[in-house]
Design a protein around this nucleic acid. Structure first.
Lengths: 239, 239
DNA sequence: CGCGCGATTGACGCCCGTCAACTGGGGTGG
DNA sequence: CCACCCCAGTTGACGGGCGTCAATCGCGCG
């Protein structure tokens, strides 16, 4: 058994949902552990995908870089979330680069090990299918938003989802549980850090958010849900 | 056996790749056939996903509609391509509405049947995983493009991919093999039909495309690949 | 031949990307 | 312990890309 990790904790990982204690113990036995310091890469875009990771503690940022160096943030990974599963299952390279935001502890399984675990525990294969399907649907939603909504609304939705899924409750509101910059938020929503900065400043005046260096606290998530939905998008002509 | 369909043809479907003749026959025996007239819906967004479809002949358009009625085209489906696989595997509702562009013939399997077929032929489950993973990666690419590229380049890429994957060779170039409007192209790329129309007009002058009512012929796919990559995106200040 | 839907084209101006300059706070080295 | 520095953030000015409105055209079908 791995030091400091209880097999039961693995039940929180979507890939291992519904497995019994013995199976979880088996899964954990085949895991390697890995530590990564803040700022270092966990895997690089286009590397052949040989390893699936589960975050134990810390947070990572997964981003795709284009030919010009522009980055698109595909998502953030928190404790008991998975990385690399799509690439390993699909037999391709990693779709982006994962970098540790804070010091991270990870569990890692090789592709061969995962294949064997899937054979021994068919439930894992079904979980993989459901997990990937869910991720695909949320990507479709993101695509739709990016196509049809204004910047402010996109940022509002992205921030709200972050606060709900990766927020920690504080006395003033839900705080994003890891250091996140304006640039990160911009790369999630297809805009620039300048625009994000202006938007956050406006929200601050309205008392919706509190924010500082790499820190955002959402005071009123419901207000975020309503933003940008007020009027029709077009307001060009006077009469 | 279904009239007019050879089991071997199913080998062209990604879900059934690598199955032997007997297995393909088995798969085909469990299929229902369905015909849909041009313009009719094959499934509706948010309906519980109970059926997987394979297109035999014709083309369909899968689109997600938002609360305001704006649509985003998720993709087009041609012969021997699959629809509904993600929703059925993920146990959710269909992510969009599929409508027949032309008269279509389809094969259909219920969720229960697919589950059983997956148990009998594990290869199908692996194929499903690989197919969904591939689709997810192409969605990630689309998201990246939508975030970082200008309209003209996005349209160029979308049109090029359509011409390559669903084009038919003619004497003047590759023609998109089904009726497609400016609006469709706009909803694929997050822009408006007006902008698409202007872009196609410009390309026509350069001899890159030929186009008419619901018809587009790409004369020079390579030119499309180069479009918009020329200069830096920012050209605002004089000195 | 008439009707309707898809396409075209011009005018206008807003959203937001781009450039530029400045501020401030926290970590590091002396 | 202080000073420096660098990185993240802020804010103003500017203008271009493209969304929006409006009007007209024309192919194809009934």
């Amino acid at each position: 058994m791995r030091p400091g990790i209880d097999p039961q904790q693995l039940a929180a990982v979507s890939l291992f949902q519904g497995l019994d204690r013995a199976a979880l113990g088996n899964v954990l036995q085949w895991a390697a552990t890995r530590k990564v310091r803040a700022g270092e890469a966990i895997f690089e875009q286009a590397d052949p995908a040989e390893t699936i990771f589960v975050m134990v503690s810390g947070h990572a940022r997964v981003a795709k870089v284009g030919s010009d160096g522009e980055e698109t943030v595909m998502g953030f990974i928190g404790p008991w979330e998975m990385m690399g599963c799509v690439a390993v299952c699909g037999g391709t390279g990693y779709p982006g680069t994962a970098a540790a935001i804070e010091d991270c502890r990870l569990l890692a399984w090789s592709r061969a090990t995962i294949d064997r675990l899937m054979d021994d525990h068919p439930r894992i294969a079904k979980n993989a299918l459901a997990t990937i399907a869910g991720r695909l649907q949320s990507l479709q939603t993101r695509l739709h938003e990016l196509s049809n909504e204004r910047v402010e609304r996109r940022v509002a939705h992205a921030l709200r989802r972050l606060a709900l899924s990766m927020g920690r409750e504080t006395e003033t509101g839900r705080e994003i549980a890891f250091p996140i910059s304006r640039q990160d938020l911009a790369e999630m929503t297809g805009t620039t850090l300048h625009t994000v900065s202006r938007i956050l400043a406006a929200w601050h005046q309205q008392g919706i958010v509190e924010s500082g260096r790499q820190r955002i606290v959402v005071r009123d998530p419901d207000a975020l849900a309503r933003i940008g939905g007020g009027g029709p998008q077009g307001g060009s002509h006077p009469a």
